[in-house]
């Protein structure tokens, strides 16, 4: 079987990145983002990226790192608050932005990965999102046509993976990762723990290895928290 294991993020990205490519990135906020692959993309310096990601990171972390270096030309996202550099580039018209409702974004990527070029949804009917899109009535309700999304490269982060590329995510760090993994022409997964074949329960695998072309163990995980909220123990 072809070896999917690579020694590090830089090596895994070799031969699959090019200027102007479409990059799909997993994560919600800073939770479950492929930290090590993003850092390596910054080192490599690939440019004019179209980035499909629910969010755009924060200043100095996540996809914010690629914004700082002006590597991103366009974002397709549902929510991009918490990022001053993003705002600056957008207002200066240095960065293109396409907003998608979050569920439409997820479904577009699912459809792309599943070979479905388009689908109808009620989400966005009567709003700016529906402008210029085909409308169709089913059972008396109006729907709009949305198209599937695929990428040249998908980068995802999982908790555990095995040498076949089978992946298991942890808690809400799953989010967009399993869907992004299905829609990359090439998909690279970074994991916290690489386990031997046979250790993951086949009934509990979230992403079957067919979707994963290359896999690395992340060198380190910072796992920044955006909104630390705690409660006090009663004395």
């Amino acid at each position: 079987m072809a070896d999917k294991l690579y020694p590090n993020a830089r090596a895994a990205l070799e031969g699959v990145v090019f200027d102007g490519m479409t990059l799909l990135s997993g994560g919600f906020g800073l939770c479950g983002i492929p930290e090590n692959l993003i850092a390596a993309l910054r080192e490599i310096g690939v440019k004019r990226l179209t980035c499909v990601s629910n969010n755009a990171g924060v200043d100095g972390f996540g996809l914010g790192l690629l914004l700082e270096t002006r590597q991103i030309a366009k974002m397709i996202s549902s929510y991009v608050g918490e990022n001053r550099e993003f705002e600056r580039q957008y207002l200066a018209e240095e960065l293109q932005l396409e907003f998608n409702p979050q569920g439409t974004l997820a479904e577009r990527i699912r459809a792309g990965g599943a070979g479905i070029p388009g689908f109808y949804t009620r989400t966005g009917v009567g709003t700016l999102v529906s402008e210029g899109k085909e409308h169709k009535v089913f059972n008396g309700e109006e729907y709009i046509l949305e198209t599937g999304i695929t990428g040249d490269l998908a980068i995802v982060k999982a908790w555990k993976g095995d040498p076949s590329g089978n992946l298991v995510y942890r808690k809400t760090a799953r989010n967009f990762n399993p869907t992004m993994a299905t829609a990359g022409r090439v998909t690279i997964a970074e994991v916290e723990q690489l386990v031997p074949a046979g250790e993951l329960d086949p009934d509990h695998i979230h992403t079957p290895g067919i979707y994963v072309n290359r896999i690395i163990v992340g060198e380190k995980y910072e796992k920044r928290i955006e909104q630390l909220t705690v409660r006090k123990r009663e004395a």
């Binding site: 929510y79 608050g81 409702p101 979050q102 439409t104 989400t123 966005g124 009917v125």
Partner: peptide
């Protein structure tokens, strides 16, 4: 500056 609709449009329909 528009931050985005997040999941609101999906929820309301």
């Amino acid at each position: 500056m528009v931050k985005g609709m997040g999941g609101a449009m999906d929820l309301v329909v």
